[in-house]
Amino acid sequence: MLTWGALFFIAAGVYGQRLLGMTSTSSKRLSGPWIIVLSYIPVAILCAVIALQTFTHQGELQIDARVVGIIAAAFCCWRHWPMAAVVTIAALTTALTRLIL
């Protein structure tokens, strides 16, 4: 359970990492290739987060209703539907799959 003491340590660590990243790089110090490499980091990280939040549960691989929801999200994106529709349909599909299974 979260406590006030733990909260401050967590906050310091999370903000500290954000601050370190924000203040340790500048366009003056980075060359062209490194800027290109940095531009790929969000792609790599977001794909990893999607994979982990879809296929794992408490640190273990698991396939369940979430996979159906993400497939529905991908379908909506392929059809160029609005982002709000993508998120809503994914949630509804997952809920429905859980209800059926």
Binding site: L46, V49, I50, A65, I70, A73, A90, A91, A95
Partner: peptide, 22 residues
């Protein structure tokens, strides 16, 4: 909240964010 599928909203949002970049 899991019964409402709310746990899928984050990854679904990220799929939408990434789609064009992929």
């Amino acid at each position: 909240p899991l019964a409402l599928g709310l746990d899928v909203m984050f990854p679904a949002l990220f799929v939408a964010l990434l789609w064009r970049q992929l």
